[in-house]
């Protein structure tokens, strides 16, 4: 009997087309995907985003026509090297915890004179509409490659952000009852053939958090960690996560802190 599978995952079909003929068995399919992932590591188009981000960082821009080179990402004005590995953190000048994107918005407003809404628009790019924010994120994160993730919980507001992020991670809601932990609370689980990191454990959080942003081959775009959170909530059937919102900072704080000790290794490349 022949059965038609109309909605079979596109990704799997694509891999079948790319890979050598496969024996019929789960093991061989997973092996072929591992080979495909390894082959991707040869060249990473994320470099294009990093280079464009560096230009954007150094160019005089905005109403005040100044560059971002005096922006303080937490390690002193103008220090980019390794700064991302210690974010999110509390900033005394803003009296709040900020992640990278929130801090970039802050610098664009304070230094370059952008209106807050202008600094926040177009956070995620598409092939016909590139995002300056994603390019800046690619540059700053690329400058932290190899740095050890070291997110502090010293300030009471850092501690509060972590606890709020933890609550969010376990918050079940929406028509499907999904929370982050639904998919990311156990070892060695998959959705279809996609491996899921266990984000409640250090190893899982380290593996996941240290490899975003990533160039997504299937989308032809560099995607930031903020985008990753945003797209998880879409699939959770939640409303849309607001870019650089308190919830996104808190959840990033929870996951980044859990990844402490890992060597940061992004922008990466993923399928």
């Amino acid at each position: 009997m022949r059965i038609k599978f109309p909605g079979t995952a596109r990704c799997a079909a694509w891999l079948f087309a790319l890979a050598a003929p496969l024996a019929l068995g789960q093991g061989s399919t997973v092996d072929e995907i591992a080979k495909y992932r390894a082959a991707l590591q040869d060249g990473n188009p994320a470099e294009l985003w990093e280079a464009r981000g560096e230009d954007l960082w150094k160019q005089p821009r905005g109403p005040k026509n100044v560059s971002l080179e005096k922006c303080d990402l937490g390690q002193g004005a103008g220090v980019v090297k390794g700064a991302y590995a210690q974010l999110p953190k509390y900033f005394a000048d803003a009296d709040r915890v900020m992640d990278l994107e929130t801090r970039l918005v802050w610098c664009m407003v304070q230094l370059q004179g952008y209106a807050d809404a202008d600094a926040r628009k177009n956070p995620f790019g598409s092939p016909d509409r590139k995002s300056d924010m994603e390019a800046l994120v690619a540059y700053v994160t690329g400058e932290a490659r190899g740095a050890k993730i070291n997110v502090a919980l010293d300030h009471p507001k850092e501690q509060e952000a972590y606890r709020l992020g933890e609550k969010m991670f376990y918050f079940r809601g929406g028509p499907h009852d999904f929370a982050c932990v639904t998919c990311h609370g156990d070892d060695s689980k998959r959705i279809r053939l996609q491996d899921l990191p266990n984000l409640t454990k250090a190893e899982g959080a380290q593996l996941a958090y240290s490899t975003w942003p990533a160039y997504r081959v299937s989308q032809g775009e560099l995607r930031s960690f903020q985008w990753r959170l945003n797209d998880c909530f879409r699939q959770q059937r939640f409303p849309e996560l607001v870019f650089a919102s308190d919830a996104s900072i808190a959840l990033t704080m929870f996951l980044a802190r859990n990844a402490n000790g890992a060597a940061f290794n992004a922008p990466a490349i993923k399928r």
Partner: peptide
């Protein structure tokens, strides 16, 4: 915090929170 950090989009309204 969730209520102020999400916005409704298409069929996904804030009541889902």
């Amino acid at each position: 915090m969730l209520k102020s950090s999400f916005k409704e989009s298409g069929q996904a309204k804030l009541e889902r929170l």
